[in-house]
Design a protein around this nucleic acid. Sequence first.
DNA 1: GCCGTTTTCGGCCCGACTGTTTTCAGTCG
Length: 594
Amino acid sequence: MKMGTTNGEIAQLLRRVAAAYQILGENRFKIIAYDRAADSIEHLTSEAKDLWDNQKLSDISGIGDAIAKHLDELFRTGSVQHFMSVFKKVPAAVFPLLSVPGLGPKKAYKLVTELKLDNAAHALDDLEKAIRAGRVAPLESFGEKSQRDILGAIATYRRGLTKENRMELLHADSIAQEVIQHLRKHDSVERVDSLGSLRRRVATIGDVDIAVATKKSDALIDHFLQFPHEKLIERGPKGATLLLHNGRQVDLRVQKPKSYGAMLQYFTGSKNHNIKLRSYALQKGMSLNEYGIKNVKTGQLHEFTSEESFYRALGLPFISPELREDKGEIEQSLRPCGLPKLVELQDIKGDMHIHTNYQFESSHDLGTSSLSEHLEKASQLGYEYIGVSDHNPSITNHTEEQIVEIMKRRKEAYISMFKKYNTNVHMFIMCEVDILADGTLALPEPALEYVDAVIVSVHSSFSQGRAKTTERLLKVLQSHPKVRILGHPTGRLLMSREGIDVDWSAVFALCRKRDIALEINAYPSRLDLPDNLVFEAVKSGNTFCIGTDAHALDHMNLMGYGVSVARRGWTQKRDIVNALEYNDFKKWLVKEDI
DNA sequence: GCCGTTTTCGGCCCGACTGTTTTCAGTCG
């Protein structure tokens, strides 16, 4: 059997091994080890295959000699003998059932054997038929309720509404805002926060988790259940879970104000951060749970109103939620130099990626708002400068001379519009130029005279293969001194398009050498450079320009999404070029002497 | 199977919720 080698595929493979081991009654710590390895791979800062290329596989936390050896075999041969032999001991129909919410290895195995489901390809259909025939309820440890629930869970899965079907951070934010507004109407609410991946500002979100500090838990949960919903999934004294009409799940967690800090910490995760934190605490004789910190010897529980005091009690500084991914943040916080002081939204002095509605025959979409509107907005946001970064003129419909002429007129038009508008905000005339398939700029050299600098971006030929794409990027980055920013470097669109396959270390090295900034595109369906690559690039000394890629006025409000990505990549203010004040930024941007 | 600021052996994060159960197993986060 050929096995996939993307991080997602490897994670699924390891989870299947864990599931098989669980059915086979293996040592439970071995099962946990495989699950943890799967988690690690899934949240990796780069492709596991790249690490393998560089013999760095066992650097991954949770991957030891044994699993590293299996993965080595996977990358070399496309399969793993040992895993195959484990899978053979378990009926194949078990695995598709694991995707159904509420079905784990044990239940899936029981269903498959008792119902004699012998075909993996239509195991779900067979199970559904068995349920409709009432054959599940009589099984030991199942019942009428379970039977109904499994049927519902299969439907949920079929509608694509499982946690595997994630949503953009922006979407999750808007759901969270509605729920939070509703919750605040209850008088007993003392604090409300988002939890989980939403609070850590992960690019895509499974379900929305909300925390409330209140002294009236029951009444508050009742109030939460008034929020319009499709189905109540569960309710207990600590919280409740609703399935909304849009198919999204919202978890509420309530806690008394005096131990709210511990709860916030506990449910913000990530899971691997918490596991590492608890191991660290255990060494100091402390056991952590959602209520506080327990002294292992005396059993005495200390409660915390805030996360800051919670971390302090462990002898640690506050660790920002964006950093809690077990990428070495706990270890780093213990070193003398400590954690980086992360960039903040208010550090941003300008937005360099704005498309206005200036009319010309462009290669891609124009913006919908005017220069003056964008300047007004920039002023409101406290910016010192903006860059107008329309796409280059269409190259198929114009001659070179025409393009030069368009760019000349465009510059004159912008300057004239700018002069009419009285503002303290400075303007740079930029252009977002396509990187053509052969690595040349989609703007003839004479036209570059009419811009201060350009952002170069890939908008076509996304799958040329690694070698060719790398060559393409390296070529364009050296093509002209006015190439200053590499726009949305991977070209990914969340949940719809994979980014380009490139040797990033080579690209990062060249950008550093030529002092070219990597864009962190804040547009919520891009968030590109992705946080994991930002993390890598920071280590190799690169700088970044956070831009909203605004095609409408409101998009300028999305800068915070880019800042979150930057923070998740451990960047500081000094790493962000558009955190420079105007004069310094201008010196950085407008360079002719490379 | 993984891992180390007491350890290369002997531990391994912790609890809630649910359904089917009279004390717990499975699943989830």
